[in-house]
Write a protein that binds this DNA or RNA. Structure first.
Lengths: 260, 260
DNA sequence: GGAAGCAACTGGCTTGAGCCAGTTGACTGG
DNA sequence: CCAGTCAACTGGCTCAAGCCAGTTGCTTCC
């Protein structure tokens, strides 16, 4: 029925990958479905097992399938994305629900949210962070707070917050791991910094090796990196956070006015 | 000097990959530098060529290196990102410069911008688009405009715009490939739709196979997908555009007020 | 001087073999 | 009934060999 191999200029591994991709995209192989085993594919196409394996690794790189040692290769199920927006910083939302938008989003999906502050240290700021805070990257010191976000004990994002020492002073922000009711932005308000504008710089890339293991990421899944800056009512930047989120679980959702 | 292979529980391919990754991250192998050839690596580590090859393919999947047939494997040079923000839609910017933010960004990088409208058709809207426009996905018809954006003749992003037929009417938007001065948003204003708010839903993923070839993407590079909705002064959505951008060349940059 | 040819390099892809390590379910013995 | 065992499956990883196809620079010949 199909082209004979002689007519086909694609290498066999590509051909197998293309066939499987087509099956996946036509829902013939639905999300969660099990692919034929490497040995089956090899026999089916009359190739060596390594060639079938290569085909699967192509699809893995495209994020279409995940392999499970001893079990098989499966079409990657598409989980709904968590949609985080600027309302993350809304005071009203914070006080009304008492919950952070992250917790709301996770519970909405029927999963259990958890956040954990891993460390609070004093450090030199990275160059890009120093720039956003208007600090000298060589001499300045900042408070560095590392936060991890989980859904059902699975890590889904990390946020590292940098606060100039003269902003944090000796408030809880400078040393306490737990910040109490209303979380971090309530503590900033205690200090007189009320968030009125934000800037978010977004990029996408493959995870660094540490992120790959730390966020236990499936292969073929990128991360979204958000460099967030908070401004107070005098347009002074008082905090920068770098979020790194699993791209298969998170998305962003902004609604905003268009300046004339 | 290093651990002997006996002490090391990592498979050889991982070990090679880890070593190379370390060299890259320490700038010992700077961006653009050439890695040792597969055959060299194999000899150096006393493994088969396939094993060295596997190591390189790991780094390729992480987006750290790119292979060039016949030339070698190179550390991927990190090009500066184009930063697109909400000012894309600013009227003032549009009229002052007469240039789209895309053109400004590209020329700022010393490259030559080009945009091209590939097609203007009438179609059924995709489900998510229909939802954003408040249309019935089964019965509605929309104008579909497909735009490609280039820098130095290299494609860097695609935008597919969907316009309800009753918005476009028989204006140029419904049929003309070239829209004249001030581009698409000027034409919407001609029809009485003035953009006052936007919503942007952002996600990151590996490119589909067509995107991979169409955008001539390097391996190990994700795309950023932006589903953009424009609202007029009556809060009616009058246009949705799905942007797909190369993640290694593009980023987003939003600054916005925080709603109370 | 210039073009053609060629050798020596590069990665791309495949073969078929082998061993290791998780997973699963059926079969066994208490 | 339960627990343990074990065989048969899965993918993970490697080897050694081979051929193909781009790239580069040198050499040769006109």
């Amino acid at each position: 029925m199909d082209d004979q191999a002689g007519t086909d200029r694609r290498p066999p591994s590509r051909r197998i990958a293309d066939d499987l991709r087509t099956s996946i995209q036509s829902d013939e192989l639905a999300p969660g479905a099990k692919l034929p085993s490497e040995r089956e594919l090899a026999a089916q196409y009359g190739t060596a097992r390594n060639t079938a394996r290569e085909a699967i690794s192509i699809l893995q790189g495209e994020g279409l399938v995940v392999a499970q040692h001893g079990r098989g290769v499966f079409v990657r199920p598409r989980t709904p994305l968590m949609r985080l927006g600027a309302n993350r910083y809304s005071r009203r939302l914070r006080s009304e629900t008492g919950l952070s938008p992250f917790r709301i989003e996770v519970t909405k999906q029927g999963r259990t949210p958890k956040t954990e502050c891993r460390s609070v240290t004093r450090d030199k700021p990275p160059a890009d962070v120093a720039d956003r805070l208007g600090l000298d990257p060589n001499t300045a010191t900042v408070i560095r707070r590392e936060n991890w976000y989980f859904a059902d004990d699975e890590p889904v994002q990390v946020g590292v917050t940098y606060i100039p020492v003269d902003v944090a002073g000796d408030s809880p922000l400078a040393s306490e791991r737990t910040l109490g009711k209303g979380s971090i932005y309530a503590r900033f308000e205690d200090l007189g910094y009320r968030i009125t504008r934000i800037r978010e710089e977004i990029s996408a890339r493959m995870p660094y090796h540490e992120e790959f293991t730390g966020l236990s990421m499936p292969p073929g899944v990128p991360v979204i990196e958000v460099l967030h800056t908070s401004f107070d009512d005098k347009h002074k930047p008082f905090e920068v956070t770098r979020f790194v989120m699993r791209g298969d679980l998170n998305g962003l959702d902004y609604e905003m006015p268009v300046e004339d």
